[in-house]
Computed example of a mutant assay.
Amino acid sequence: MIHFPVVRKGPLRALSLRLFAALVLVLVIVGVVYLDRDGYRDVNEDGMTLLDCFYYAVVTLSTTGYGDITPVSDSARWVNVLIVTPARVLFLIILVGTTLEVLTEQYRTSLRTTRWRRNVKDHVIVCGYGTKGRSAISALLETGFDKSRIIVVERNPTVVRQATSAGLVAIEGSATRSAVLDEAHVRNAKAVIIAADSDDASVLVTLTVRQLTVGQVRIIAAVREAENAPLLKQSGAHHVIVSSATAGRLLGLSTSAPPLIDVVEDLLSPGQGMALAMRSANRDEVGRSPRELETLVIALVRRGKVVSLADPGGGAIETGDMLVYVRDDRSPAPAAS
């Protein structure tokens, strides 16, 4: 099931407002009839009590009209013409409006789904909306990636609601199933990020994605244990991030060289100071050494492979190279008033 970002108030609130309006309308008619109760005749001819007024208001507004209570005086008939009849129409509008809103919402959802299916392509599918999945999406958004081109696949309904509340399109279901990935249009995707809770689930998702896309979509997966990384690469993952090994290395650095961990946190934290970025080499930079540029270049990406500046090929920039550099990511200071 595809879930789109919430764009309106909840259905319970909308229904509560309609029920409150209908109740207020009934109470108004009860008050009007009770004030002019002498102008009505009951078949029992024992006078109009407050209960009779409630009965008459409900029966009249719902257009049931048993006829056991009727207006006989001119004032009572004028009240029915000028107040009760318009109130009856308004009461029906309230009841029918609820049904129409439900039907309209279903039509709107169907229309959005059809339009989404027609336009979705070159998107990123994030399998899992836990800590790793949310962090990956945050990193995508920081690079300027369009939020509408991110699709979350998650089996937990509560987590799905969290994703839609964040403005993301979410598909409820297991990413290990081909039908769910087909709903996400995995064949037209740019990349699939696998942030599953367990390594075995990551392997299954990777195999399923590779089977559906035949290697045409880039797969980036995260695993907890380093020994499972080769298995994921054999399953078809292009890049594997070992979360436990990375965390352990950072813990070691924080003990032996505390300033290094501060630098790493600075690079990974948006808006704090330094940030890693990548851009294409300009025409006037081809042939020059990366160290000569004003930009602090730390590596080159040449034909899909990372070239260190210490390597023989990293001494000069070639046509088509991508520059990995450190940029200033600090938020601009507010202008003085």
Rank of each mutant, 00 (worst) to 15 (best):
I2F: 03
H3S: 01
F4L: 11
F4Y: 15
V6R: 00
L12I: 05
A14L: 15
A14S: 13
L17R: 15
L19G: 12
L19I: 07
L27Y: 05
I29S: 02
V30M: 01
V30D: 02
G31I: 07
V32C: 08
V32N: 02
V33E: 10
D36Q: 14
G39T: 11
R41F: 09
V43E: 12
N44M: 13
N44I: 06
E45D: 15
D46V: 14
T49P: 03
F54T: 07
T64D: 11
T64L: 15
T64G: 10
T70C: 07
S73K: 03
S75V: 14
A76L: 04
N80L: 04
V81I: 03
V81L: 10
L82M: 10
F91R: 00
I93N: 03
V96R: 06
V102Y: 15
V102H: 14
L103D: 02
S110L: 09
R112Q: 07
W116T: 00
R118L: 15
N119E: 09
V124K: 04
C127S: 05
C127G: 06
G130S: 06
K132S: 15
R134I: 09
R134C: 06
S135V: 08
A139T: 13
L140N: 08
L141C: 10
G144K: 08
G144R: 15
S148E: 12
I150A: 01
V153K: 01
V153Y: 01
T158P: 04
V159T: 15
A163W: 00
T164G: 09
A166K: 14
I171W: 00
G173E: 05
T176V: 13
T176A: 08
T176E: 13
R177F: 12
R177T: 09
D182E: 09
H185G: 05
R187C: 08
A189Q: 03
K190P: 04
I194Q: 01
A195T: 13
D197F: 11
D197A: 14
D197K: 10
D199A: 04
A201P: 02
A201S: 13
V203T: 03
V203N: 00
L212Q: 02
T213C: 01
R218H: 03
R218S: 04
A221Y: 00
A221M: 03
A222E: 03
N228S: 07
P230F: 11
L232Y: 01
H238E: 11
V240N: 04
I241D: 08
A245F: 01
T246I: 14
G252F: 04
S254T: 10
P258D: 08
I261C: 04
I261M: 05
A277R: 12
M278H: 15
R279H: 03
S280G: 14
S280K: 11
A281K: 06
V286E: 06
G287Y: 00
L300G: 03
V301E: 11
R303H: 13
V306L: 14
V307F: 06
S308L: 14
D311W: 04
G315A: 09
G315Q: 09
T319Q: 11
G320E: 07
M322V: 06
Y325E: 04
V326F: 05
R330Y: 02
P334W: 08
P334C: 12
A335M: 15
A335P: 09
